[in-house]
Amino acid sequence: MQTPAPVEYAKATSIADAISRLEALGEDSRPVAGGYSLIPMMKLRLARPETVVDLNGIAELRGIRVEGNELVVGAMTTHADVLSSAILFEHYPIFREAEHVIADPIVRMRGTIGGSMCQADPASDLSAVGSALRGNAVITGSSGSRTVPLREFHDGPYETVVQTGEILTELRYPIRPGAGSAYEKVERRAGDWGVCTSGVFVVVSGGVITDCGIGMAAVNADHYCAPEAEALLMGKAPTEENLAAAAAAAANEANPIADQRGPADYKRHLASELTLRALRRAVAASQGA
């Protein structure tokens, strides 16, 4: 039987209330969002907060909207709401494709995008998506909000730049007219963490790639991204040869380790193959846009 260690519980009523509680309680407190990451960690005693501050009552943290040229997703927006969002799908089908292979429909009803980002699992699908899209995190503390690029959000496995007394409040993704996007994942069984995943966006204009982003999860790529592969594509025609060269470069930016999900060379092969498949589909979508 797995039970968390003794813990105190507080339910926050607003962002300001959550922050003031977390600041007062200090580093032994943790905010809890959907709970499908933190509570298992507490049951395994890998996390032992003295107090959990529940964010589930804070309506202002939920919702998806367009603001200027950005898509804004509240940190407490559930996976199910991201999956079914017409706004996100219109601009970036990658969200629907990634969410469709995250956990299972019940977990997606309560699990949140912000919780997933802050868990910072090396296999986090949404971290790969966020890095591919070069999104930003809005982190709020008692002295105000700061914006951090998602490619600088993680400090390593299970570590983020969110400090004690701060919470992640929003995720922001730049809208890119004409972009195509796609997500590819190989998993051992439905809903599992990926053996390897790759998510990309591409903008093709005038016969060449004018913008792109490549994200990968579960293969230990720095900040879940492949900037050298992206550089290879910029200004190039989206030919199969060029896409394959970029996919191979992305695999070289992965540093997979062998574990129960597979040997390292297999994962590196997947990084190349899945990136190529995602690039092909994103290019086709951009050219059709």
């Binding site: 709970g35 019940i106 309560r110």
Partner: peptide
């Protein structure tokens, strides 16, 4: 909800 992964107080 998977009730093994939610605190009763929630």
């Amino acid at each position: 909800v998977k009730s093994c992964t939610m605190l009763a107080v929630q």
